[in-house]
Design a protein around this nucleic acid. Structure first.
Lengths: 152, 152
DNA sequence: ATAAATGCAAAAAATTTGCAGCCGT
DNA sequence: ACGGCTGCAAATTTTTTGCATTTAT
Protein backbone atom coordinates (compact mmCIF):
# COMPACT_ATOMS: atom_id res chain seq x y z
CA UNK A 1 0.00 0.00 0.00
CA UNK A 2 1.25 3.48 -0.67
CA UNK A 3 2.82 5.09 2.32
CA UNK A 4 1.36 8.45 1.47
CA UNK A 5 -0.56 9.23 4.58
CA UNK A 6 0.21 7.99 8.04
CA UNK A 7 -3.36 6.79 8.37
CA UNK A 8 -3.60 4.46 5.52
CA UNK A 9 -7.13 3.85 4.34
CA UNK A 10 -7.35 0.54 2.61
CA UNK A 11 -10.79 1.16 1.17
CA UNK A 12 -9.79 4.44 -0.35
CA UNK A 13 -6.85 2.72 -1.89
CA UNK A 14 -9.00 0.00 -3.26
CA UNK A 15 -11.12 2.53 -5.06
CA UNK A 16 -8.02 4.21 -6.31
CA UNK A 17 -6.77 0.96 -7.78
CA UNK A 18 -10.16 0.21 -9.25
CA UNK A 19 -10.22 3.62 -10.86
CA UNK A 20 -6.87 3.01 -12.40
CA UNK A 21 -8.19 -0.04 -14.19
CA UNK A 22 -11.57 1.35 -14.89
CA UNK A 23 -10.27 4.57 -16.37
CA UNK A 24 -8.50 2.59 -19.05
CA UNK A 25 -11.56 0.57 -19.89
CA UNK A 26 -10.14 -2.53 -18.28
CA UNK A 27 -12.29 -4.96 -16.40
CA UNK A 28 -11.74 -4.83 -12.68
CA UNK A 29 -10.80 -8.40 -11.88
CA UNK A 30 -9.28 -9.97 -8.82
CA UNK A 31 -5.97 -10.89 -10.42
CA UNK A 32 -5.50 -7.40 -11.79
CA UNK A 33 -6.36 -5.82 -8.48
CA UNK A 34 -3.87 -8.07 -6.73
CA UNK A 35 -1.06 -7.21 -9.11
CA UNK A 36 -1.70 -3.49 -8.99
CA UNK A 37 -1.97 -3.50 -5.22
CA UNK A 38 1.23 -5.44 -4.87
CA UNK A 39 3.03 -3.00 -7.11
CA UNK A 40 1.68 -0.14 -5.03
CA UNK A 41 2.71 -1.81 -1.83
CA UNK A 42 6.38 -2.03 -2.66
CA UNK A 43 8.62 0.94 -2.86
CA UNK A 44 11.05 -0.62 -5.28
CA UNK A 45 10.35 -2.19 -8.63
CA UNK A 46 9.35 -5.82 -8.64
CA UNK A 47 10.54 -8.53 -10.93
CA UNK A 48 8.24 -10.97 -12.62
CA UNK A 49 9.58 -13.65 -10.32
CA UNK A 50 8.78 -11.68 -7.20
CA UNK A 51 5.29 -11.04 -8.45
CA UNK A 52 4.78 -14.69 -9.29
CA UNK A 53 6.02 -15.78 -5.88
CA UNK A 54 3.86 -13.31 -4.04
CA UNK A 55 0.74 -14.15 -6.03
CA UNK A 56 0.94 -17.88 -6.66
CA UNK A 57 -2.77 -18.19 -7.24
CA UNK A 58 -2.63 -16.15 -10.40
CA UNK A 59 -1.80 -18.22 -13.44
CA UNK A 60 1.60 -17.75 -14.94
CA UNK A 61 0.37 -16.51 -18.27
CA UNK A 62 -2.01 -14.08 -16.66
CA UNK A 63 0.80 -12.35 -14.82
CA UNK A 64 2.50 -11.64 -18.11
CA UNK A 65 -0.73 -10.51 -19.70
CA UNK A 66 -1.69 -8.30 -16.81
CA UNK A 67 1.67 -6.58 -16.73
CA UNK A 68 1.57 -6.12 -20.46
CA UNK A 69 -1.81 -4.46 -20.32
CA UNK A 70 -0.71 -2.23 -17.47
CA UNK A 71 2.42 -1.17 -19.32
CA UNK A 72 0.59 -0.48 -22.54
CA UNK A 73 -1.94 1.63 -20.70
CA UNK A 74 0.79 3.67 -19.11
CA UNK A 75 0.14 2.65 -15.54
CA UNK A 76 3.26 0.62 -15.09
CA UNK A 77 6.84 1.15 -16.13
CA UNK A 78 8.98 -1.68 -17.33
CA UNK A 79 12.51 -1.13 -16.10
CA UNK A 80 15.34 -2.45 -18.14
CA UNK A 81 17.53 -3.95 -15.53
CA UNK A 82 19.70 -5.68 -18.07
CA UNK A 83 18.99 -8.85 -16.17
CA UNK A 84 17.13 -11.83 -17.46
CA UNK A 85 13.74 -10.64 -16.46
CA UNK A 86 12.40 -7.13 -16.38
CA UNK A 87 11.15 -5.36 -13.32
CA UNK A 88 7.97 -3.37 -13.04
CA UNK A 89 6.88 -0.37 -11.04
CA UNK A 90 3.63 1.49 -10.77
CA UNK A 91 3.77 5.03 -12.06
CA UNK A 92 0.72 6.79 -10.80
CA UNK A 93 1.23 8.94 -7.77
CA UNK A 94 4.99 8.84 -8.10
CA UNK A 95 7.45 11.30 -9.46
CA UNK A 96 9.67 10.54 -12.39
CA UNK A 97 12.84 8.96 -11.05
CA UNK A 98 15.78 6.70 -11.83
CA UNK A 99 17.23 3.47 -10.55
CA UNK A 100 20.29 1.79 -9.19
CA UNK A 101 20.66 -1.87 -10.02
CA UNK A 102 22.96 -4.38 -8.40
CA UNK A 103 24.65 -6.37 -11.10
CA UNK A 104 25.21 -9.25 -8.76
CA UNK A 105 21.88 -9.83 -7.03
CA UNK A 106 19.52 -7.69 -9.15
CA UNK A 107 18.39 -5.53 -6.24
CA UNK A 108 16.81 -2.32 -7.51
CA UNK A 109 16.67 0.93 -5.59
CA UNK A 110 15.20 4.26 -6.54
CA UNK A 111 17.55 7.19 -6.83
CA UNK A 112 16.51 9.69 -4.21
CA UNK A 113 17.28 13.24 -3.38
CA UNK A 114 17.58 14.69 -6.85
CA UNK A 115 15.72 17.94 -7.08
CA UNK A 116 15.06 17.62 -10.73
CA UNK A 117 15.75 15.13 -13.46
CA UNK A 118 19.26 15.77 -14.76
CA UNK A 119 18.31 14.68 -18.24
CA UNK A 120 14.96 16.26 -18.83
CA UNK A 121 16.23 19.53 -20.23
CA UNK A 122 18.37 17.67 -22.71
CA UNK A 123 15.48 16.12 -24.51
CA UNK A 124 14.69 19.08 -26.65
CA UNK A 125 18.30 19.56 -27.65
CA UNK A 126 18.62 15.92 -28.61
CA UNK A 127 15.40 16.02 -30.57
CA UNK A 128 16.81 18.87 -32.59
CA UNK A 129 20.27 17.51 -33.15
CA UNK A 130 19.31 13.94 -33.97
CA UNK A 131 19.55 12.93 -37.59
CA UNK A 132 17.14 10.05 -37.48
CA UNK A 133 14.69 10.97 -34.76
CA UNK A 134 12.06 13.62 -34.53
CA UNK A 135 10.25 12.81 -31.31
CA UNK A 136 11.56 11.81 -27.94
CA UNK A 137 8.91 11.23 -25.36
CA UNK A 138 10.70 9.36 -22.64
CA UNK A 139 13.98 8.22 -21.29
CA UNK A 140 15.38 5.82 -18.79
CA UNK A 141 18.44 6.21 -16.70
CA UNK A 142 19.86 3.36 -14.71
CA UNK A 143 22.96 3.20 -12.60
CA UNK A 144 24.75 -0.10 -12.20
CA UNK A 145 26.78 -1.07 -9.21
CA UNK A 146 27.04 -3.38 -6.28
CA UNK A 147 24.75 -3.21 -3.30
CA UNK A 148 26.24 -3.19 0.15
CA UNK A 149 25.53 -6.86 0.68
CA UNK A 150 27.19 -7.91 -2.55
CA UNK A 151 30.21 -5.64 -2.28
CA UNK A 152 31.43 -7.07 0.98
CA UNK B 1 35.72 -2.44 -38.25
CA UNK B 2 36.11 0.94 -36.67
CA UNK B 3 35.70 3.71 -39.14
CA UNK B 4 38.30 5.85 -37.49
CA UNK B 5 40.67 6.45 -40.32
CA UNK B 6 39.77 6.70 -43.98
CA UNK B 7 42.42 4.14 -44.79
CA UNK B 8 41.35 1.24 -42.76
CA UNK B 9 44.10 -1.23 -41.98
CA UNK B 10 42.72 -4.63 -41.22
CA UNK B 11 45.91 -6.01 -39.78
CA UNK B 12 46.32 -3.15 -37.40
CA UNK B 13 42.79 -3.74 -36.33
CA UNK B 14 43.42 -7.38 -35.76
CA UNK B 15 46.21 -6.55 -33.38
CA UNK B 16 44.01 -4.04 -31.71
CA UNK B 17 41.35 -6.64 -31.13
CA UNK B 18 43.92 -9.09 -29.92
CA UNK B 19 45.27 -6.54 -27.51
CA UNK B 20 41.85 -5.96 -26.16
CA UNK B 21 41.58 -9.60 -25.19
CA UNK B 22 45.14 -10.01 -24.18
CA UNK B 23 45.15 -6.96 -21.92
CA UNK B 24 42.45 -8.58 -19.81
CA UNK B 25 44.28 -11.85 -19.54
CA UNK B 26 41.85 -13.55 -21.88
CA UNK B 27 42.97 -16.16 -24.31
CA UNK B 28 42.92 -14.93 -27.87
CA UNK B 29 40.65 -17.45 -29.53
CA UNK B 30 38.94 -17.47 -32.88
CA UNK B 31 35.41 -17.23 -31.54
CA UNK B 32 36.31 -14.31 -29.33
CA UNK B 33 38.06 -12.52 -32.15
CA UNK B 34 35.04 -13.02 -34.38
CA UNK B 35 32.65 -11.62 -31.86
CA UNK B 36 34.78 -8.61 -31.04
CA UNK B 37 35.39 -7.86 -34.70
CA UNK B 38 31.73 -8.11 -35.50
CA UNK B 39 30.92 -5.72 -32.69
CA UNK B 40 33.56 -3.32 -33.99
CA UNK B 41 32.22 -3.53 -37.48
CA UNK B 42 28.76 -2.29 -36.67
CA UNK B 43 28.02 1.22 -35.63
CA UNK B 44 24.89 0.30 -33.79
CA UNK B 45 24.51 -2.14 -30.95
CA UNK B 46 23.86 -5.75 -31.86
CA UNK B 47 21.44 -8.13 -30.27
CA UNK B 48 22.31 -11.66 -29.27
CA UNK B 49 20.20 -12.90 -32.14
CA UNK B 50 22.05 -10.81 -34.70
CA UNK B 51 25.34 -12.06 -33.36
CA UNK B 52 24.20 -15.66 -33.45
CA UNK B 53 22.97 -15.30 -37.01
CA UNK B 54 26.12 -13.64 -38.20
CA UNK B 55 28.39 -16.18 -36.53
CA UNK B 56 26.60 -19.49 -36.84
CA UNK B 57 29.77 -21.51 -36.41
CA UNK B 58 30.21 -20.39 -32.85
CA UNK B 59 28.33 -22.57 -30.43
CA UNK B 60 25.31 -21.06 -28.84
CA UNK B 61 26.62 -21.32 -25.33
CA UNK B 62 29.93 -19.80 -26.30
CA UNK B 63 28.24 -16.66 -27.59
CA UNK B 64 26.67 -16.11 -24.22
CA UNK B 65 29.91 -16.87 -22.44
CA UNK B 66 31.99 -14.64 -24.69
CA UNK B 67 29.66 -11.69 -24.30
CA UNK B 68 29.55 -12.21 -20.59
CA UNK B 69 33.31 -12.16 -20.33
CA UNK B 70 33.55 -9.08 -22.51
CA UNK B 71 30.98 -7.24 -20.45
CA UNK B 72 32.59 -8.19 -17.17
CA UNK B 73 35.95 -7.01 -18.42
CA UNK B 74 34.50 -3.70 -19.43
CA UNK B 75 35.05 -4.04 -23.16
CA UNK B 76 31.44 -4.35 -24.10
CA UNK B 77 28.38 -2.53 -22.95
CA UNK B 78 25.04 -4.24 -22.56
CA UNK B 79 22.34 -1.83 -23.65
CA UNK B 80 18.88 -2.11 -22.30
CA UNK B 81 16.79 -1.42 -25.29
CA UNK B 82 13.61 -2.38 -23.57
CA UNK B 83 13.10 -4.88 -26.34
CA UNK B 84 13.05 -8.61 -25.84
CA UNK B 85 16.76 -9.21 -25.84
CA UNK B 86 19.59 -6.97 -24.85
CA UNK B 87 21.99 -5.47 -27.32
CA UNK B 88 25.73 -5.21 -27.06
CA UNK B 89 28.24 -2.66 -28.25
CA UNK B 90 31.99 -2.43 -28.06
CA UNK B 91 33.31 0.37 -25.93
CA UNK B 92 36.97 0.71 -26.69
CA UNK B 93 37.86 3.38 -29.14
CA UNK B 94 34.52 5.02 -28.62
CA UNK B 95 33.55 7.71 -26.23
CA UNK B 96 31.00 7.04 -23.58
CA UNK B 97 27.66 7.92 -25.09
CA UNK B 98 23.93 7.36 -24.95
CA UNK B 99 21.22 6.10 -27.23
CA UNK B 100 17.93 6.97 -28.78
CA UNK B 101 15.68 4.01 -29.48
CA UNK B 102 12.65 3.95 -31.71
CA UNK B 103 9.89 2.17 -29.88
CA UNK B 104 8.24 1.21 -33.11
CA UNK B 105 11.01 -0.20 -35.28
CA UNK B 106 13.83 -0.62 -32.72
CA UNK B 107 16.21 1.63 -34.65
CA UNK B 108 19.04 2.77 -32.40
CA UNK B 109 21.02 5.95 -32.81
CA UNK B 110 23.87 7.31 -30.75
CA UNK B 111 23.29 10.62 -29.07
CA UNK B 112 25.78 13.01 -30.57
CA UNK B 113 27.02 16.45 -29.80
CA UNK B 114 27.06 16.34 -26.05
CA UNK B 115 30.26 17.79 -24.75
CA UNK B 116 30.22 15.74 -21.62
CA UNK B 117 28.03 13.12 -20.07
CA UNK B 118 25.23 14.87 -18.20
CA UNK B 119 25.09 12.12 -15.63
CA UNK B 120 28.68 11.38 -14.83
CA UNK B 121 29.10 13.92 -12.11
CA UNK B 122 26.03 12.59 -10.34
CA UNK B 123 27.50 9.21 -9.68
CA UNK B 124 29.45 10.17 -6.62
CA UNK B 125 26.51 11.96 -5.12
CA UNK B 126 24.28 8.97 -5.68
CA UNK B 127 26.84 6.61 -4.23
CA UNK B 128 26.86 8.67 -1.09
CA UNK B 129 23.16 9.15 -0.72
CA UNK B 130 22.06 5.63 -1.51
CA UNK B 131 20.97 3.52 1.39
CA UNK B 132 21.55 0.16 -0.16
CA UNK B 133 24.40 0.73 -2.56
CA UNK B 134 28.05 1.47 -1.99
CA UNK B 135 29.55 1.28 -5.47
CA UNK B 136 28.31 2.57 -8.77
CA UNK B 137 30.56 1.86 -11.67
CA UNK B 138 28.40 2.48 -14.67
CA UNK B 139 25.14 3.81 -15.94
CA UNK B 140 23.02 3.69 -19.00
CA UNK B 141 20.84 6.39 -20.41
CA UNK B 142 18.41 5.72 -23.20
CA UNK B 143 15.95 8.03 -24.82
CA UNK B 144 12.80 6.59 -26.33
CA UNK B 145 10.97 8.08 -29.20
CA UNK B 146 9.94 7.67 -32.78
CA UNK B 147 12.33 7.84 -35.66
CA UNK B 148 11.50 10.04 -38.62
CA UNK B 149 10.30 7.10 -40.66
CA UNK B 150 7.96 5.83 -37.99
CA UNK B 151 6.58 9.20 -36.96
CA UNK B 152 5.23 10.07 -40.37
C1' DA C 1 51.83 -29.49 -20.09
C1' DT C 2 48.03 -27.50 -18.32
C1' DA C 3 44.55 -24.57 -17.63
C1' DA C 4 41.17 -22.26 -20.10
C1' DA C 5 37.79 -22.10 -23.79
C1' DT C 6 34.80 -24.39 -27.00
C1' DG C 7 31.04 -27.25 -28.89
C1' DC C 8 27.48 -30.20 -28.29
C1' DA C 9 23.55 -31.81 -26.17
C1' DA C 10 20.60 -31.67 -22.46
C1' DA C 11 18.40 -29.05 -18.85
C1' DA C 12 16.42 -25.18 -16.96
C1' DA C 13 14.21 -20.85 -17.12
C1' DA C 14 11.34 -17.43 -19.21
C1' DT C 15 7.73 -16.22 -22.21
C1' DT C 16 3.95 -17.02 -25.43
C1' DT C 17 -0.07 -19.29 -27.29
C1' DG C 18 -4.54 -21.88 -27.72
C1' DC C 19 -8.63 -22.81 -25.85
C1' DA C 20 -12.43 -24.03 -22.67
C1' DG C 21 -14.79 -22.03 -19.10
C1' DC C 22 -15.50 -18.13 -15.77
C1' DC C 23 -16.78 -13.57 -14.46
C1' DG C 24 -17.55 -8.36 -14.94
C1' DT C 25 -20.39 -5.37 -17.09
C1' DA D 1 -25.88 -12.61 -22.42
C1' DC D 2 -21.78 -11.00 -24.27
C1' DG D 3 -17.07 -10.23 -24.56
C1' DG D 4 -13.21 -9.88 -22.07
C1' DC D 5 -10.20 -12.35 -18.76
C1' DT D 6 -8.36 -16.26 -16.57
C1' DG D 7 -6.24 -20.74 -15.72
C1' DC D 8 -4.23 -24.62 -17.45
C1' DA D 9 -1.27 -27.10 -20.28
C1' DA D 10 1.54 -27.21 -24.13
C1' DA D 11 4.69 -25.00 -27.24
C1' DT D 12 8.39 -21.66 -28.00
C1' DT D 13 12.16 -19.13 -27.05
C1' DT D 14 16.07 -17.85 -24.34
C1' DT D 15 19.71 -18.89 -21.29
C1' DT D 16 22.49 -22.01 -18.50
C1' DT D 17 25.02 -26.21 -17.37
C1' DG D 18 27.92 -30.51 -17.70
C1' DC D 19 31.34 -32.70 -19.83
C1' DA D 20 34.52 -34.45 -23.35
C1' DT D 21 37.58 -32.38 -26.60
C1' DT D 22 40.32 -28.80 -28.42
C1' DT D 23 43.34 -24.87 -28.16
C1' DA D 24 46.29 -20.98 -26.49
C1' DT D 25 50.01 -20.06 -23.75
Amino acid sequence: MPRLSPNYDEDADRDYVKDLLWSSGLKVTKPRLSVVKFLFSEKNPLSIVEIKNKLPKIGNASIYRILEVLVSNGHVNRINTGRIHSSYEILRGRKHHHHIICTKCDEVEDVEGLEKCPVKNLTEYIETSSKKFSIIYNHSLEFFGLCKKCSQ
